[in-house]
């Protein structure tokens, strides 16, 4: 049995959770059971539209294969979820032969800075030298927060004046990285609600300036989504993608009790892949997204 980090993360929270299926009847397939399957999905933030569609698909598969009992149906549901997310399973693509630049974007409090620190650690473990760019010049003490991480990671950080131009910080960071022989620059941006037009413009400018600092940069723009977010995550993905060339999502805070089911709607609406998942507070707790493992954890039959 391969290691399933989601399940491990959730073991910690286990005794707080009652199994979603404790109340499910073990008897034959009926209307009530389909409704309960849908409920399980909706309660994991999958969204009504996608949930209905998935249950519909399980229904016809069940007919085709003659599945009759709950365990079989749940297995079918897992397969459908995994199939739905399969194309969304992609890894980071960072060049080795030139400076790699990753920009992290997202709404306030989604977990950008912490994710950035973990990502830096991960890249360092691959033998890359990583420079941090504190382009959140808006939030009070954001640069200090990133600075603490830079010290812990034993690397440097480029920053600007509070209230200064974040695009200038990003530009300087790329120049500094080139001059000092870094392989990677990770750009932390200020949290912003996707409804704020002028702030989204600012993001666009940072991206543009990075491209001017070096052609093809940033190679990755990651949208950090808080796993506890409901259907609004879809709006976030749509609007951030409209402003900048988002290359993938990072699902943060999967170590709580939230199951992050909204990524099903996110990937369906935007086609964005999910590249990384945050499953804890340690520097090592950032892993590649795995559709199958995700499906297993989403439809979890563990009895307490």
């Amino acid at each position: 049995m391969p290691r399933n980090p989601w399940k491990e993360a959730m073991e910690r929270a286990r005794h707080f959770l009652r199994s979603q299926f404790a109340s499910l009847p073990g008897r034959a397939v009926g209307r009530e059971m389909w409704e309960q399957l849908e409920e399980v999905l909706v309660r994991s933030d999958v969204g009504v539209a996608v949930a209905t569609e998935l249950v519909e698909r399980v229904r016809s598969e069940a007919m085709r294969r003659g599945a009759r009992d709950l365990p079989q149906l749940l297995q079918l549901l897992r397969e459908e979820v995994a199939a739905c997310l399969g194309p969304a399973q992609q890894t980071l693509r960072l060049p080795r032969d030139e400076l790699a630049v990753v920009m992290l974007v997202g709404v306030n409090g989604s977990g950008k800075t912490t994710t950035l620190a973990k990502l830096a650690h991960r890249l360092q473990k691959q033998g890359r030298r990583v420079l941090l760019a504190a382009a959140d010049t808006f939030r009070a003490a954001a640069a200090e927060q990133l600075g603490v991480w830079a010290r812990r990671l034993g690397t440097e950080m480029v920053t600007g004046m509070p209230g200064g131009d974040p695009a200038a910080v990003a530009f300087d960071a790329v120049a500094a990285a080139r001059a000092r022989g870094y392989h990677c620059v990770l750009v932390d941006t200020a949290g912003r609600l996707h409804t704020r037009h002028n702030l989204m413009e600012e993001l666009r400018k940072i991206e543009r300036v990075l491209g001017r600092a070096q052609a093809g940069c940033p190679q990755e723009v990651l949208l950090v989504i808080d796993a506890t977010t409901g259907q609004n995550a879809v709006r976030q993905a749509v609007e951030f993608s409209r402003a900048v060339r988002v290359t993938g999502c990072c699902l943060a805070k999967m170590d709580g009790t939230a199951k992050g089911g909204v990524v099903l709607s996110v990937t369906r609406e935007t086609g964005l892949p999910v590249k990384l998942v945050g499953i804890g507070q340690g520097l090592d707790d950032l892993i590649d997204f795995d559709a199958r493992a995700f499906a297993e954890a989403l439809i979890d039959t563990h009895q307490p």
């Binding site: 409090g109 506890t228 409901g230 939230a258």
Partner: peptide, 8 residues
């Protein structure tokens, strides 16, 4: 956070 989903 008002954006919180079912986990709220």
């Amino acid at each position: 956070d008002v954006m919180t989903g079912q986990e709220a």
